[in-house]
Amino acid sequence: MMNEMSYLFFLAVLGTTLLSCILYVVFFVSQNAKVRVVARGVLLLSGVLQTLYIGSRYLIAGYTPITSQHEAVVFFAWAATWAYLSFRWRYTVKNFGTFVAMLIMLLLLAASFASRDILPLKPVLQSWWLPVHAGVSLFAYAFFSLAFCGGLMYLLQERELKRKKFGYFFSRLPSLDALDQLNSHCLAAGFAFLTLGIVTGSLWTRQAWGTYWQWHPKEIWSMITWFVYLLQIHQRFTAGWRGKRAAVMAIAGFAIVIFTLWGVMYPLGGVQSYGQ
């Protein structure tokens, strides 16, 4: 019964996100403000449904559902949705929603292909560090994914401005400055979360195995990600790395994040691979 309801929630999440995605694309093409209001409403609904879905899995599994690939990616999408919606609260970046909605849709699609089975969690991993560490880390990824969308938009817009060929995107994309600020905010927020994630991760490792650092590939790649973003932040605030360079770095950083998830974490067996 609970399982079926949970599954229904997941389908509803996919449906609403897809609808929101389509509406955002329609808005992008037509630039009709009414469509955007509806699209945002539907995305908010999708965010609520995602929350309900994660809640239902928590009830079924009995622990915070961020352990399997499916769960982690759904949580990733959920974090991105709420990070975007909270961002939206503070200031508007023209047509940002279209790009973010598509990214969320892609994440949810990726999640829908992964196994939705609930695996029993090793007793050694059952700790309240798990939701704290995974949640904080995935929020970091969510902000980096927003920076990635902003970076893409920046490159598109910069290209039009440099080449002086004003095509489809010119009027539809926000100003370079807005995108650059977006990059700076997302980077700062994401980096703070990532640092917390790494600290909590090593505390959790210490609690489970008595050592802060195990040279697990996931750990190594997380440190690489951290250093890449550290470099970006450092260069932005000291040498004034901004604009195109910052956008390219945001995209490269996100590529490493994705690689850490799908190139390192899951092929090794995800969270279950720890301590082997």
Binding site: L161, P174, S175, L176, D177
Partner: peptide
């Protein structure tokens, strides 16, 4: 118009 696309405000 161009300045607005570059600088925003």
């Amino acid at each position: 118009e161009l300045a607005r696309k570059i600088f925003g405000d």
